[in-house]
Design a protein around this nucleic acid. Structure first.
Lengths: 157, 157
DNA sequence: TTACTCATTAAGAATAATTCTTAAAAAGGT
DNA sequence: ACCTTTTTAAGAATTATTCTTAATGAGTAA
């Protein structure tokens, strides 16, 4: 369960970080080292890390960072539409991949798996969605028991 | 925010309760008054109540029920595929409506709104989903800021 | 019905996740 | 470099959820 699985093309990360800086400036959010490092961590991870996991990772480079900062930053990043909050066990998990894809969420262990989208996000958006509010992201999730948990449950019987 | 908005056709509720009893028996779950009352409460609500809200409601009829029982019961009901866990703020909310529909989840206030589905659930299911696990329910959510919150934010500027 | 067994419950303690408070530090503009 | 305003770290506080334990009650078989 390491959360620093590297993305193949490193330039892409740089672009995303630049884009992130740009967006911060546009929104009058200050570009701090903490924000950059947190963003990098989530953007590099494919594990949908929890705040705690991001904290653990960022702490390696910034030993004084506080968990609260991680929470605050992840929330503001969600608000800015830079990451999305996925899964819904009682522990929040985050995803910086905003390309159309879905998730299988295990209700037993809370794990979140990427599922290639059957239907592109745009196609899912109802025409009247603006009546409700401004959509920051679309999230299709399949909830159930993952095969690993099913197997584990079977074994102990 | 009352959670006991009545469903128009009362017979439907009775059917659902019977179905619920049946399912309990099939799964060797005991049919207790607590479970029935909790199920009725969620099934009658259109507000996607939190565990706390269900607790408050059920307590009117069963003053001694514990919050823990509500949590336990809602979890086992989710596991049985009788309700789904919706939204994902840090407070869990539940929905007994399993017909195809989606949700607008406000990331500011945590409110969950029903959105009529643009695409039926079945159409969303990828062919290879079984590779991940057994799906109990499909949940399409649009996350963002609801109009009420947007308005509220605008006013105080 | 009655007794038996095991799941379920209430109560409240415990834990886990998240947010708040405060004073100090740092960003971005002057 | 200076000033203003955000942002931060630290740790306390709060909120949500789960665990522990002993007592209760559901289903079952006599």
């Amino acid at each position: 369960m390491c959360i620093h699985t590297q993305i193949s093309r490193q330039p892409e990360l740089k672009n995303r970080v630049e884009e992130f800086k740009e967006l911060c400036r546009r929104r009058n959010l200050r570009v701090t080292e903490q924000r950059l490092e947190i963003f990098r961590t989530v953007a590099q991870s494919k594990e949908h890390p929890s705040a705690e996991a991001v904290f653990g990772q960022v702490r390696k480079k910034m030993p004084n960072i506080s968990l609260d900062t991680v929470y605050r930053t992840l929330s503001s990043m969600e608000e800015a539409g830079l990451v999305s909050r996925v899964g819904n066990s009682n522990k929040a998990r985050f995803d910086a991949d905003l390309t159309p894809h879905s998730h299988f969420v295990c209700t037993a262990c809370g794990e979140v798996y990427d599922v290639p989208a059957a239907v592109p996000d745009a196609a899912l958006m109802p025409a009247n969605i603006a009546e409700f509010g401004e959509v920051k992201n679309v999230n299709l999730q399949f909830r159930g028991i993952c095969n690993r948990c099913r197997q584990a449950a079977g074994e102990q019987k």
